[in-house]
């Protein structure tokens, strides 16, 4: 992890995205190294979530290039072409997005079996281990609706991990949680980061970003205003917009 890799793992260059007449991304670029934890912060409506969704092709860009490892994401059009990318890049959502009609264990096991065609036995073993990792052993047969928000979000993380991804995208995963549940989810992400998983987070948890992130990005109005290591970023911001934002949230 400490050896500087020759080539960034994720490279976003000058991307644009509009919904009708509303421009959401106006020429954003960023690079993220393998094993890094990158946090994207910024005011609501600044295009953070859209930027994140571009990384795994949930949203297609109008212009610009996105490279994730060997994939040129902007060139992948059909669902079929996107499947290998989604194998590599998992995502966890603000609203958990679990499948309500399946148990916790089924939620975790479904995609590896149905999408990746993995052996059921292996996936089951993996799923049980992952549940233990997110400290939900014993909840295998519960349904998502029977769990608290924090528990559901941890299931969602386990589900993402079951795809054996190399990158996980976290889209404001603690924003819908009650305050007392935020920590249990952040702890799981912190563990993942320390294991060397590449994580990209859109978050409002500034303290978490400060402690865990290798790089912090600040977007506002669809452009990348400033980025850097958390130390300099939080303690010595240069851009006035970032300064006023930090003054409000810190």
């Amino acid at each position: 992890m400490n050896t500087p890799p020759c080539k960034p793992f994720i490279e976003v260059a000058n991307i644009y995205k509009s919904y009708g007449s509303i421009a959401v991304l106006k020429g954003i670029s960023m690079t993220i190294q393998a094993g890094d934890v990158a946090c994207i912060i910024g005011p609501s409506g600044s295009g953070k979530s859209t930027l994140l969704r571009c990384l795994n092709g949930l949203v297609s860009v109008d212009r610009g290039t996105i490279r994730v490892d060997d994939f040129s994401v902007e060139l992948l059009q059909s669902e079929k072409e996107l499947v290998p990318l989604r194998h590599k890049v998992s995502m966890v959502f603000q609203q958990y997005n679990l499948f309500p009609h399946k148990t916790v264990l089924q939620n975790i096991m479904m995609a590896p079996i149905q999408v990746l065609g993995h052996n059921k036995q292996d996936v089951h073993e993996r799923a049980v281990k992952l549940l233990a990792k997110v400290q939900l052993s014993g909840k295998e047969n519960a349904y998502p609706g029977e769990l608290s928000g924090g528990q559901q979000q941890r299931v969602a993380i386990a589900r993402a991990l079951a795809m054996q991804p190399e990158i996980i995208l976290f889209d404001e995963v603690t924003a819908a949680l009650d305050p007392e549940m935020v920590q249990e989810v952040l702890n799981v992400i912190r563990d993942l980061a320390s294991e060397g998983m590449t994580c990209v987070l859109v978050t409002h948890e500034m303290r978490f970003a400060q402690q865990v992130a290798d790089q912090v990005f600040f977007t506002d109005g669809g452009v990348m205003v400033e980025h850097g290591a958390p130390d300099r970023f939080f303690n010595n911001p240069s851009d006035p917009r970032l300064k006023s934002f930090l003054a409000k949230v810190l």
Partner: peptide
């Protein structure tokens, strides 16, 4: 809509 999005992000096809 989010449940469907969860499926998409896991690589499910529309038919799946």
């Amino acid at each position: 809509r989010q449940t469907v999005e969860g499926g998409i992000s896991l690589g499910y096809s529309r038919a799946q």
